[in-house]
């Protein structure tokens, strides 16, 4: 009987020892929030420089975004190695963000072939859905609200296509990613397995 109790305690102890650390996820949100805002502000401030040729603006966004993506993938791999394990939760989050990256690439490629197709509303729409999913999975309300705000904002954007898309980016990404990311970073329970 003692052995049985001991074995149950062993299992419980091991399960308790592997906690989901959400700090790296918050770093991802903060990075993309700041990075996209910086790109948008630069584009907004120097439009003649960024839009000097037909494809320069697209290249500016693609090259910058891919550079950011490589940097964050490297950061995430390094963090995962340091932790030494991958929880089921972080695997699910990783998969849905890979799906978002694939959607982003799909929309960008489509924008090359379709005339008068602006990829920003579609990207923000996908982003809002992924944010809501992430928030629901980790049970963190600021990310859910950020995603809902972005979803409503994208809806408004489609009804008012004349609105400046760079300002849309700044407002959308700040409220959808940067603020929820900061909120998650400073949250006391970023190391909580019960999430």
């Amino acid at each position: 009987m003692n052995n049985i109790k001991k074995h149950i305690e062993t299992i419980a102890g091991v399960i308790k020892s592997t906690k989901e650390n959400l700090k790296p996820l918050s770093i991802n949100f903060i990075f993309w929030g700041i990075f996209v805002n910086a790109l948008s502000i630069f584009h907004y401030s120097f439009p003649s420089l960024v839009q000097s040729t037909k494809y320069s603006a697209i290249l500016y966004w693609i090259i910058s975004s891919i550079t950011g993506l490589i940097f964050m993938v490297y950061y995430n791999i390094k963090t995962r190695k340091n932790i030494g394990y991958e929880t089921h939760l972080s695997r699910v989050i990783k998969i849905i963000w890979i799906v978002f990256s694939v959607s982003w690439i799909y929309v960008i490629i489509l924008s090359f072939f379709l005339e008068n197709f602006n990829p920003v509303p579609s990207i923000l729409f996908f982003l809002s859905l992924i944010l809501i999913m992430t928030g629901l999975i980790i049970k963190f309300n600021p990310i859910i609200f950020g995603g809902i705000f972005l979803l409503l904002f994208t809806f408004y954007l489609n009804l008012n296509p004349g609105i400046n898309l760079l300002l849309v980016n700044i407002v959308g990404v700040s409220l959808g990613m940067l603020l929820p990311g900061l909120s998650l970073f400073y949250s006391k329970s970023t190391n909580n397995s019960d999430r």
Binding site: K6, H7, T10, V14, T18, K81, Y85, E86, T87, H88
Partner: peptide, 25 residues
């Protein structure tokens, strides 16, 4: 065996685990 039980419990709880992490657990 307690060590094998700890290994399996860790792997059930996580998608994958490194050798060093299992050594620690």
């Amino acid at each position: 065996n307690p060590i094998r039980l700890k290994i399996i419990s860790s792997l059930i709880n996580n998608s994958n685990c490194d050798f060093n992490f299992l050594k620690e657990v």
